[in-house]
Amino acid sequence: MSSIATLLTIVSRVLNVSTMPVQLSLPPFCFSIDTANSLVSENLRRLYPVEAFTQAALVDYHLQLLPGVGIHRFYHQQARFLCDGREPFTPLPAAHGYAMLEWGMNWAIASQEFSHVIVHAGVLAFGDHAVMFPAPPGSGKSTLTLWLAFHGWRLLSDEMGLLVPNSLDVLPFVRPICLKNRSIELAKQWLPDAVYSTICHDTHKGDVIHVSPPELSWQHKTRPAQLRAIVFPKYQAGSALQITKLNQAQAFMELANNAFNMSLLGQLGFDSALLLVEQLPVYQIQYADLSEVTQFLHEVLDAI
């Protein structure tokens, strides 16, 4: 039987047709992923734990990563991303397929899920006390996320913080951490034993790699945490740690700038953000040394 399955896989690879879709349960969502791009399948198997590949949950979004059409099937091979049969992006080179799939998952959630307030932020928790790090791309958010996730904190999310409206509760959406350009080298120096995807070179964001978070984060992938602070990080080479406490108005505006769906949620989104800035300490930090940041975060959590 297994030889027949292998034969089928080989035939489908050669013909570049899709195999059976895999189901990936990433609480609180479940994706079905259909691809014949072997690089993508390999990276998926490498980065996500075995338990994530389960048929137990109902599929929320059907994702496909298909080969390019026409001549792009063979020359300058492309990858096309489809969600429920719709194609939101223009095709990318086939070698960028895995990054495209991860970005596509972000797109599917950010543009279609409105049960949570979604913030472009890393969220990490020490025990069940969470800190949210909202930041625009290029702030060093993911590098900070990576550092904390491998230093005793548990990762709830790297890209999208899922907040329960009108509360301080935050849900995990555990997925690999996305690193870019220079932070790739840095990560490999710090964490030679971590599990990495293959590098996608020369994407529109530069070189991109994904890193699987440690076991602790995956174990608690359904365990909510409570927000205790919001920190807007900004990496600045050579800088000593500078901490600025934001007032409520500043905090609200910064939060709104980093929210994916706050305006869509209307009153609910507004009220939820208001609750956060009224109840939580909010800081802006500039830093170069991540151990200084870690120490500061522990001080913030201890003070509450």
Binding site: D60, Q112, F114, S115, G266
Partner: peptide
């Protein structure tokens, strides 16, 4: 619950578009 969540998402998107 599955249906309720997805239908609510769709209705919220439609409402926002209307506004």
């Amino acid at each position: 619950d599955y249906a309720r969540r997805h239908i609510q998402n769709a209705c919220r998107l439609a409402h926002k578009q209307q506004m």
